[in-house]
Design a protein around this nucleic acid. Structure first.
Lengths: 336, 336
DNA sequence: ATGATATTTGACACCGGTGTCATAATGTCA
DNA sequence: TGACATTATGACACCGGTGTCAAATATCAT
């Protein structure tokens, strides 16, 4: 099977390759007759323009890169699916690139990525969306990027996040309204800005309702299930045991639930447990986890859509957006 | 910041661009002195070769595409991580493309993918690895591909799978050895070849141990948690209720566990439950699920590695490989 | 020193498209 | 019908690299 290029199409149709290019890109100033003729040849030869050649000429690749370093597989797939939705809408594709925030090679690693594959833009998900070092680098390299769930204040770049603080506040109030006063808290990974946001939502709710904050009720997690299991042990070993646990994500909450169940504790009768994110696991276990639903897909979709807009027209105004997080109550929390 | 191209480097270094290209690609026949000089200019100007231009000249993109249509997020991320490992080892990148097997537009959709982004090869994961239609199309288009977990017999293309039948056989034997005779089975998605393999492993084990196969103990699932919940209802409503349930994946098993727990059944005392895949959820719930560990990352890694080998040298022999699946016993199964 | 061979280097076409600009064809109006 | 604006088309350079091949230079045996 011989390769069909723009040249062969042009020759076959008896026009110049520039005219073929015009038809290809739906440019004006082609007579209907010619256009028709060329389109027919497209069909006849089954012509597919070479995206690489086009990329070289236009200096574009129509590929967006997605950077992440996150232990939650469901979070990652949600991010991907939001990003893909936006990409496909505009005929872009998505290249994924998990890498580690820590370690001196981050910049080098991303540099390598940009060297081996020219990307039109980058979506940064936590914790990268909070890495000032990375952002400075991208700015210097002049690579368009969009931040998802970032806490960095920067009006000159795209950012879509959800209201973590508000969500944590509401969830804590929910627990308080059920009569809980000793509410343990498991923090997330310190590199993620959401960690501090959720923590302060928790503290603010306590404060608003006149409940003293007790440092010994706070455990340090890192969003992984494993860290949740460690924190769970700390918390369930406390005497007196708190009546409720608020974990900064659902995986850690699931770990608490597992240990509690292993210890023959009844949830929610003996202890209430709540998570954050509304990951699939929150409804796959029994009792289902009360949690905060974050619109992860939607955040990413909007971020990528804005990113593509900005790529196609760099003069487009970029803006920052905050989406609402929503309380989902299930069976894991109850009045004490 | 002016763009640094191979031309500017050549001019600056006082050599031809071909020589620069030689240094870039570590080709022989460059005098050490010249090589040194050019390398210094690379540093000085911070030169980054343009992958698109290189791609055009060599007719390569160094990008592998990954096709999937799978409800299990953990399966997807495991596939991705295995694929990425192989890609990065050879300086390739990975582009992801979820799409639907059903619907007439599959071929069109993949065609679109290949049109908008030239890929050097494609990894097919279930159920695509079993789609003869897609495979024929790729062959016709002359796009290299590798199949993961495919049951299609085709010695001319790369395939890495694990032994689903053997795994299911072992798991069933495990249940039988615990004294179970009424073992319900939840099937997977009919489009996946693994579904039949696992089912026949189950039947063969029953047969070997002289246990009659009972059709009413088989429920039709599709690998999704939701389908598992439906099947769970069917099975737990049976009278007499079977003493064990073997679900074709862990999500469906988790759904059975959830319903059982909701109904105040003790697992494994009242009923044993087993899954397949060793997905994260299998150890995130209580009791942990007895299951079969499939080396998903490893399968994909090997498949992609072979794929890249074949791309770099089309004369490379391709081969098919079967990896072992392994029984993992946890708390969800016990003697009756 | 001489010719034969091996190594280093560069000129130039090429990959498959797009952008610029000149020219040809067509349309408009007095 | 001629002058002028408008539309259609193509020639050609260009994007930033790589492949081919011939020329220039270095190495070596005799």
């Amino acid at each position: 099977m011989k390769k069909v290029t723009i040249n062969s199409v042009a020759e076959y149709a008896g026009v110049s390759k520039k005219t073929v290019s015009r038809v290809l890109n739906n440019e004006p100033n082609v007579s209907p007759a010619t256009r028709e003729k060329v389109l027919k040849v497209f069909k006849e030869l089954d012509y597919k323009p070479n995206p690489i050649a086009r990329g070289l000429a236009r200096n574009k690749s129509f590929i967006i890169g997605c950077l992440y370093d996150n232990p939650s597989k469901s979070y990652i797939t949600r991010v991907q699916s939001g990003a893909l939705e936006a990409c496909h809408k505009f005929n872009y594709n998505l290249l994924i690139h998990p890498c580690e925030l820590r370690g001196t090679e981050l910049i080098e690693n991303v540099g390598q990525l940009l060297t081996t594959s020219r990307l039109d833009g980058l979506v940064l998900t936590p914790p990268f969306s909070d890495s000032q070092e990375l952002i400075d680098y991208l700015k210097k390299q002049d690579i368009p990027y969009a931040r998802v769930a970032s806490a960095i204040q920067d009006d000159s770049s795209i950012s879509v996040r959800s209201n973590d603080e508000q969500g944590a506040f509401e969830l804590t109030e929910h627990l308080i309204s059920l009569g809980h006063k000793d509410i343990a808290f498991i923090k997330g990974h310190p590199d993620h800005s959401a960690t501090e946001k959720r923590f302060s939502g928790y503290r603010n709710a306590l404060m608003k309702h006149g409940i003293d904050f007790k440092a010994h009720l706070v455990a340090e997690g890192n969003f992984s299930y494993h860290s949740g299991a460690d924190s769970a042990k700390e918390i369930l070993d406390l005497d007196p045991m708190p009546t409720a646990v608020f974990a900064s994500n659902d995986y850690m909450a699931a770990a608490v639930l597992k240990l509690a169940t292993q210890r023959q504790l009844k949830v929610p009768q003996d202890i209430s447990i709540a998570g954050f994110d509304n990951a699939p696991i929150a409804r796959h276990i029994w009792p289902g986890l009360t949690t905060i639903a974050q619109p992860v897909e939607e955040m990413t979709r909007q971020a990528v859509e804005q990113l593509i807009m900005q790529i196609s027209d760099p003069s487009t105004e970029v803006y920052q957006k905050v989406l609402e997080a929503k309380l989902i109550t299930r069976e894991s929390t109850a009045a004490r």
